[in-house]
């Protein structure tokens, strides 16, 4: 739920990067954090395991700037992708205004992508939101790998909703800001 604090003249939105384990959600946030000017961002908080897998979430606060006297702030979160952490994903997803679904384009990860996307739909529905009307952007990550599925195939399986989708190589930054721009605009458009 977006929060508008009139006294502080701030608008807060929450965007969650969702997707299966190792699909590149944290990499997206790390790249954004490395590239955004210091005055527009806070610290990147990561609650991770010793093996640097996300345990709870990563968190990055972003200031988009002032519009008509209101500062627009986005809180970017990732969820832990591993199947084990389903209830943690529910907790992080709670109150989200928009979701980026980061899919792993590798052929052998298609089943995990589908399962995670299905779970996202179920979790949003359980939180009283309509999946097909919720601000959602897909990112097909790791498109540089030799065993990446072609975009039309990924579209057929993962995007029957026909939401905006972007090809990405997050580790190189390809598609990262395009994805962020799309989801922030979707959220702002619906405030």
């Amino acid at each position: 739920m977006a929060l508008i604090n009139v006294a502080a003249r701030e608008i807060h939105g929450k965007i969650v990067y969702y997707g299966p384990g190792l699909s590149g959600k944290t990499t997206n946030l790390q790249y954004i954090h490395a590239r955004i000017p210091a005055h527009s961002k806070g610290e990147l908080l990561s609650i991770a395991t010793e093996a640097e897998r996300t345990l709870f979430f990563d968190f990055l606060p972003l200031d988009v700037g002032k519009v008509h006297g209101f500062t627009i702030r986005f809180h970017l979160y990732t969820v832990p992708g591993q199947v084990l952490y389903e209830r943690t994903r529910v907790a992080v997803l709670n109150g989200a205004d928009g979701v980026v679904f980061v899919a792993d384009a590798k052929r052998d990860r298609l089943a995990e992508n589908l399962q995670s996307l299905r779970e996202l739909g179920q979790n949003l529905t359980a939180q009283g939101k309509k999946f097909l009307e919720f601000p959602l952007v897909l990112q097909y990550n790791k498109m540089d790998l030799p065993d990446a599925l072609p975009t039309p195939v990924l579209d057929r399986y993962l995007n029957p909703m026909r939401v905006p989708r972007f090809e990405a190589i997050a580790i190189q930054g390809v598609g990262v800001f395009e994805t962020l721009r799309a989801i922030t605009k979707l959220v702002v458009n619906r405030l």
Binding site: A34, R35, I36, A38, V64, I72, R181
Partner: peptide
Amino acid sequence: AAQDTIDLIFGKEPQGPD
């Protein structure tokens, strides 16, 4: 105005410290 600002910030890759 917000969408224009977002385009301005995220439209092309921001100049980061690197």
